[in-house]
Design a protein around this nucleic acid. Structure first.
Lengths: 185, 185
DNA sequence: TCCTTCTATGCAACTCGTTTCATAGACAAG
DNA sequence: CTTGTCTATGAAACGAGTTGCATAGAAGGA
């Protein structure tokens, strides 16, 4: 259900087309919520039919026309209502943890390269987040007195950074454990 | 797709019925993978049809009969194959982050109680994990020379603990930010 | 010239996951 | 004696999410 709300937030931050939303979901919003373009187009259509969004056909030069969506009044109301509802704290879903426990019934050493691959992927994400933080919040070109929206975006980004740092430390722990099992016993 | 594999791992650790699996998914396995009983029964049926599992009807006294599932040879093969395949590092899905960014278009102070609720829930989980660690791994009744399976279970649990600690610290950061926005500016 | 990439939108089929409902015997509390 | 909880299994319907396919013009490189 939160895809609708993530779209509302993103369109309130800036109106845009399905295509543009899909790219935002690969970047900033995608830090904490993913969606493919098919899913986005389908939900946009439904939300427009429900009156949550307004559409405007925008002709363009040198590229296909696009449909620019923006949040209508009922959309703002729906978002506000959702913000006031309690939600369940999420439960994690971690394939890698399943694999690690499964390694007890296979060769634990075979997992080492896989864990190293994850480590590299998370290092890349952390670098990406840190670059974004520098660019938008802590660097010299960041707006000096940040407004509420920027403060909130920053605290969410700090959450992503903390998550990646924690994950990297854990993956180090996992690697040390796998090496220990491989060498000894 | 990983539900199948989580079930294979759990049944290799100990054979059991769908009901028992559902309870394990509320406890240890549920630390990193959740599933409801309906989902489990459906997948068990399919896995048995595919020859990955064996079933045995177990009559019981004072309670309904149960079907005890155990992993068949093709199931072990399937798990081993999956363990050797690379998987994508997961992307996070965090409703609360959507809400926090959405708070820029609503009253940020209204989120404070919600964030505090999440803080309490994560504190509870952390306490639960730490109790489990004490009981199974670091306490006086834990098996003195742990085998590979226990080492791996422990490192997964340490991951859960690290996740909860990181989340609690981040929620403190979020609360401080919300209070700052509420008081000042 | 052809091949790829980028912008832009969408359908169809499928799998995964959740919610609701149903059954049924045993046992304990009120 | 009724209500609630625990064990145990399952059907049906729905909603969320993924994968594959299709279209189409513009731009840039081999």
């Amino acid at each position: 259900m939160a895809l609708e709300h993530a779209i509302l937030v993103s369109l309130l931050e800036k109106p845009g087309s399905g295509y543009e939303l899909a790219r935002r979901f690969e970047r900033s919003i995608g830090y904490f919520w993913t969606a493919t373009h098919q899913q986005i187009y389908r939900v946009l259509k439904r939300m427009e039919a429900d009156g949550l969004l307004d559409v405007r056909e925008v002709p363009q030069q040198g590229r296909p026309d696009k449909k620019e969506y923006s949040v209508a009044t009922p959309g703002r109301t729906a978002l506000s209502q959702w913000l006031h509802e309690p939600i369940e704290p999420e439960s994690v879903r971690h394939d890698l943890a399943v694999k690690i426990r499964g390694a007890a019934f296979d060769d634990p050493a075979a997992l080492i390269r896989e864990v190293e691959r994850h480590h590299r992927a998370h290092s890349g994400r952390l670098a990406h987040y840190l670059a974004g933080e520098q660019r938008d919040f802590t660097g010299p070109e960041a707006p000096a007195p940040p407004d509420a929206g920027q403060e909130l975006q920053h605290v969410v980004l700090r959450g992503g950074i903390a998550y990646e740092r924690m994950t990297l430390a854990w993956l180090d722990d996992v690697l040390a454990t796998l090496h220990r099992l491989h060498a000894g016993h």
